[in-house]
Amino acid sequence: MTARDLATTAIAAFPTIGLEALTTDAALLTRVDRKYVVPVDAAASLLHDLRRSADAPAALEIDGERELAYRSVYFDTPDLLSFRLAAHGRRRRFKLRTRTYVDTGAAFLEIKTRGARGLTRKERDAYDLDAADRLTAQARDEVAGALDAIGVAPARADDLDARLQTLYRRTTLLLPGAIPSRATIDLDLGWVDADGTGFTLPRYAIVETKSPGQAGALDRALWRAGYRPQRVSKYATGLAALRPDLPRNRWTRVLTGPFASSLLTRKDASCAA
């Protein structure tokens, strides 16, 4: 049995929870996110250990599926303003994407902005599935307003176009405790650049814990196994992996580690999609 099969087996053994119950129990409007890049076999082992623990998590299930397919399309300017603001750690920055939940056919437009005071704001609105690869005129107007609010010229919204798409399968867990928290496990990770090239990370998972503050049981289990939170962004790190000429110091640790081997599996978008 492969490591991927072991992960699927562990996920299938968790008790389940519906979306409404998940968001009620762990809405986490204020939270601390920690990301880990973990080999799939290690992730599978951790999931099996969690399943056997006294406080086993519950897995989100929608229409009988626990591993839900996601597709995100990220938008940026020709000079990659969004990427460069993140790469240089600028206080004022933004990230814009459409996110499609492939299994349900729902799509959303999401813009995350950070202003001069370091406050992060995320806006999310339902979006036309057929327009998920482009920005409508209404979307550009909304984005222009969000950019203006953080001191970025609103006219830059007219320059935004699709630059990168990411594909993966996500399992969401509700972690029990005095204050419930959440975690996501992303598998079958793939990236496709605007020029059609792409890469996959078949041997790795991205595990993200979302807690109201202090680290939870899953964080501590990851630490005991030798894994620490890493700075990784599906958009920025993926783009830096695809384009070695771009600034990359902010993500050196993962780019010279797990993502380094990804370039060996680079391929056409027709294969990665």
Score class of each variant (00 low, 15 high):
L129Q: 10
L242V: 05
E123Y: 11
L239Y: 00
R203F: 04
L174H: 07
T24Q: 15
R90I: 01
A155P: 00
A153G: 05
S181T: 10
E142T: 11
P57E: 08
D186T: 11
G151R: 05
L50T: 05
P78M: 10
A7V: 11
L129R: 14
F94T: 11
V152P: 00
L160W: 04
R117H: 13
L60S: 06
T172L: 02
L80A: 07
T100C: 10
L81G: 02
V38T: 04
A183M: 08
P202I: 01
W223N: 13
P176H: 12
R31K: 13
A44S: 05
H48Q: 10
I179F: 06
S211A: 15
A273Y: 05
P154A: 10
G190D: 05
G64D: 12
D125M: 12
S53P: 09
Y235K: 05
D5Y: 02
R224E: 10
V32C: 13
P154T: 10
R31N: 11
L173V: 06
L109P: 01
R163A: 08
A221Y: 05
G216K: 03
G18P: 03
D268N: 11
G89D: 15
A7E: 02
L50W: 06
T113M: 07
A132I: 08
P180K: 07
P57L: 09
E20N: 10
D268E: 07
M1L: 09
P180D: 03
Y101Q: 04
T23C: 04
T172Q: 04
S181R: 02
F259A: 01
D33G: 07
A183T: 03
Y101R: 04
A27I: 05
Y127N: 03
V73W: 02
E20G: 05
D5Q: 14
A241G: 08
A42L: 11
E67P: 01
S270R: 15
S211R: 04
D188R: 14
E61R: 15
Q214A: 15
T166L: 07
G64H: 13
I17L: 13
S82R: 03
F199M: 15
A13Q: 08
F94Q: 02
L85W: 02
G216C: 09
L147F: 07
L239W: 00
A205K: 02
T209F: 03
